[in-house]
Nucleic acid binder design. Structure first.
Lengths: 203, 203
DNA sequence: TCAGTCACATACCCCGAGTATGTTCCCGAC
DNA sequence: GTCGGGAACATACTCGGGGTATGTGACTGA
């Protein structure tokens, strides 16, 4: 009976996945605002009732999607940071991983293009505090611990650095695929320069 | 008769101004999405018909408001930049002017918080290309001409620098007024560091 | 076998942007 | 002086989409 029960569970999980996949596709292609819940339901071969059975609202659906995508990517970036011998190198490794993720179709579009529009700035930042923003602040602390940058109080530096990441991600999103490698290289420059400039004021 | 005609013109201009003022107030306080056109019309003591007589749509109303606010502020920032003897000092002067403007109630909220949500990223960037973004690229060119930073091709640096401005502005918006002076000082640091880092790689 | 609940489908409500159509006032022409 | 017409709105309506309330069949557990 556990089998039958799990069978049923599998079926409902399948529609949930189909809804999430359809939402991911349509939100990245048409954008969050221009895709109705009926569109998502139709793409997943169900109706709007299924959506509201599995998710709380349109933004609720988006948040689940956001968490999925962002958690996966954040793990990779954090691993890249941790794998490096030096925190400064780790930051660049995590940055490269981030820029690479933004070159893929869904991640950047959902997390840095649609999320602010869908959730609003405050909710977006609250959601990001578990992921990119947390990783960023951790990296800044590690850099300060290693004496590579001065220790900063306040939220200005992490906020502005986060804004840099968002701008880089959005730039990559609207860059045609064949130019993305070059743009990724160009994007590294301001971050390297900022690091250099911060470390030079350590003394 | 020119007098009477202008009298009529004054009246219609008055309602147009009342609509723009009401929209500015409500959009900054409640946000663009959470204020209906009926709210704006009621606040201006007219009806929705007046709005669609003077403006093309809700986003059209917002764009006119955006242009008004942004043109005024952009002139000040550009003047601050031009007044300085050195382009590097000019950049900091323009930055200070910008941070000050974001500390006032309407400018930052409309231009950097509501505009992306109201217009979408693409339309927002198109609107900004006449103002902050243009000033920013002009300043980067001036810095390169003066040999203070290397000459960069590509759009990565201006895009990311623009992202920094947006993040700083948004941070100031959500900072309580009594803390804003301190936060402004904190915000200058990453820009100074970026400039220093860029100039150190000039050689 | 039957009550109950899960996993949806169907039908409906409501708000708000946009539109279509009045209505009033002024103005210039005859 | 009046009369056609257009400017400056007001009023009444449509329509799309998020959200809700209710129906329904299938499965499950007692």
């Amino acid at each position: 009976m556990a089998e039958v029960k799990s069978r049923r569970g599998e079926y409902t999980e399948a529609t949930r996945r189909a809804l999430l996949d359809a939402a991911a596709r349509l939100f990245t292609e048409r954008g969050f605002a221009r895709t109705s819940l009926d569109d998502v339901a139709a793409d997943a071969r169900v109706t709007k009732g299924a959506i509201y059975h599995h998710f709380s609202s349109k933004t609720g659906l988006f948040e689940v999607l956001f968490d999925e995508v962002e958690e996966q990517e954040n793990d990779r970036a954090r691993a890249a940071f941790a794998a490096a011998s030096d925190p400064a190198l780790g930051v660049l490794a995590a940055l490269d991983q981030f820029l690479l993720a933004c070159s893929e179709p869904e991640y950047g579009a959902l997390v840095f293009r649609e999320a602010p529009l869908a959730l609003g700035w405050d909710a977006w930042r609250r959601c990001e505090e578990k992921y990119s923003y947390a990783l960023l602040t951790d990296m800044l602390v590690a850099l300060a611990d290693a004496g590579r940058i001065p220790r900063h109080a306040g939220e200005a530096l992490p906020s502005i650095a986060f804004g840099m990441l968002g701008a880089a991600g959005q730039l990559l999103i609207r860059t045609p695929p064949q130019d993305r490698e070059r743009v990724r290289a160009e994007c590294r420059l301001p971050f390297v320069a900022l690091l250099a400039g911060l470390s030079s004021t350590t003394a």
